[in-house]
Amino acid sequence: MTTKTLGRIYIALIMVFLYAPIAVLIVLSFNASRSRVVWGGFTLEWYSALVSNSSIMNALWTTFGLAFISALISSVIGLLGSIGIYSMRRRGYRLMLFATNIPMINADIVTGIALLLWFVRFLPLGFTSVLLAHVTFNLPYVILCILPKLRDMDIYQYEAALDLGAGEAYAFVRILMPQILPGVLSGFLMAVTMSMDDFVITYFTKGAGVNTLSTLIYGEIRKGIKPEMYALSTVLFFIVLLLLMLVNLPYDRIDLHKCLKRLKIKFFCAK
């Protein structure tokens, strides 16, 4: 009994540590009092205030748009890039892997500053510069999600398909694509998360006009946080929870990868 109970208590304590601040945000979002420590009754006031707060809503859409577009661009370039790297000879392969690791290993503050110094030479800082920066730090995650799938894939099936008369494009879509797809998908999701969570690189490359949620909140901390922010964090938390459950659960239960495979084949090979 003892070790087992102790173990459970320990895990529970870690969870309290990890979730207490999030719980605080959620509770405060329903607090009628503006105080951060006194409960003044239940209200949904902050949620309606949130929807009509244009600066928060703008930042929210910037964040989502940025995450989606940067993830999409980095998935496409990353997929092509991984195939390119995969077919390189040893030296090129190693060099590219090293280059891929640079933005991942480097401190965000250094990456942000380096991009800033480069951007100010040819680009007004704004949405475009932030987008370029986000694609830059997303790419390594995409590549490192796809490359292992390429290494594990069965190239002989592809060659067999060619021998049996399939065209190269057809064989690629039917044989190779389904094997790589899970990697592309997790790379895309990683990129979305990384982009939504980034503060430092956005902070240095954004210029004056644009705000993502992170930079908006950071700017407000000194002025004092408005209760709408608590409402926003609650909404975000449950969106993330829902998304992660949708992404994670079907992986075990129904074979998501098989479903997608079928979809893709239908889409590409309808002749």
Binding site: L18, D197, F199, L213, S214, I217, S233, F237, V240, L244
Partner: peptide
């Protein structure tokens, strides 16, 4: 919690 915005 890793997926929750870090500034928040």
């Amino acid at each position: 919690p890793m997926w929750m915005n870090f500034i928040l």
